[in-house]
Amino acid sequence: MDKLHRQGDEERVGFELQIAGARNIKAARALLSDYGNDIDKLRAAEPWMISAGTTAQAQTGATGLPNAGAATDESAQMRRWRRISGSEGDEK
């Protein structure tokens, strides 16, 4: 039963850090005990660890550039696949 309580407390702390906007939950959890398990004290002492907003922004990874080799229309895509398959000159 104690193990379940500990796991529940760990998950709760992790969720609270996530909601607070911690950039790295594992690192924030490791430092939290140094500040009396107070997220506000951690935020004040280590501002780089917790983002300014209420939640951490998800990384999208999009560059805004088209994918390399992506066809822009159906005929270009078919030409690309024919070139890849080696049947480029077999068109009717």
Results as ranks from 00 to 15, higher is better:
M49R: 14
M49S: 09
I39Y: 15
E10R: 14
L32Y: 13
E10Q: 13
I25W: 06
M49Y: 04
D34S: 11
M49F: 04
A20R: 15
P47W: 10
G21W: 08
A45N: 14
L42T: 07
Q18M: 10
A22D: 03
A28L: 02
S33F: 14
D38R: 10
F15P: 00
A27C: 02
G21L: 03
D38E: 14
G36T: 04
A44Y: 05
E11C: 05
E10T: 11
N24I: 01
Q18K: 14
S33Q: 13
V13M: 12
N24F: 05
N37I: 03
A30G: 04
D38F: 10
I39F: 14
A27R: 08
Q18I: 03
L17V: 02
D34H: 09
A28H: 07
A22F: 01
A30R: 13
Q18W: 13
A30E: 06
G21M: 02
R23I: 13
K41R: 15
Q18P: 01
N24W: 05
L32Q: 01
Y35A: 00
Y35W: 10
P47A: 07
K41A: 15
I25S: 01
A45S: 14
R29H: 09
A27Y: 09
R43D: 03
K26T: 06
D34A: 07
M49Q: 10
I39S: 14
A27D: 06
A45P: 03
R43E: 01
G21N: 04
A22T: 02
G36A: 13
K26I: 01
S33T: 09
S33N: 05
A44Q: 15
A27L: 10
E46V: 11
G14W: 11
P47T: 03
A44F: 05
L17A: 02
L31W: 10
N37T: 02
L17W: 10
F15I: 08
E10D: 10
A44G: 07
E46W: 06
N37G: 01
L42R: 08
E46P: 00
G14S: 09
R43Y: 08
L32E: 07
A22W: 07
A28C: 12
I25D: 02
A30P: 00
K41Q: 15
P47L: 02
L32V: 00
A28G: 03
S33K: 14
E10C: 08
W48P: 00
Q18G: 12
W48Y: 12
G36S: 11
Y35G: 04
L31V: 02
G21Q: 06
E16C: 07
A28E: 05
I19L: 13
L32W: 13
G14H: 02
A44T: 05
N24K: 13
L31D: 05
Q18N: 10
R12D: 04
G36I: 08
V13D: 12
G21V: 04
R23M: 06
R12T: 09
P47Q: 10
P47M: 05
E16K: 15
P47V: 06
N24G: 00
S33P: 01
K41D: 14
A44K: 13
R12E: 12
I19C: 06
V13A: 09
S33I: 11
I39M: 06
A22H: 06
I19F: 11
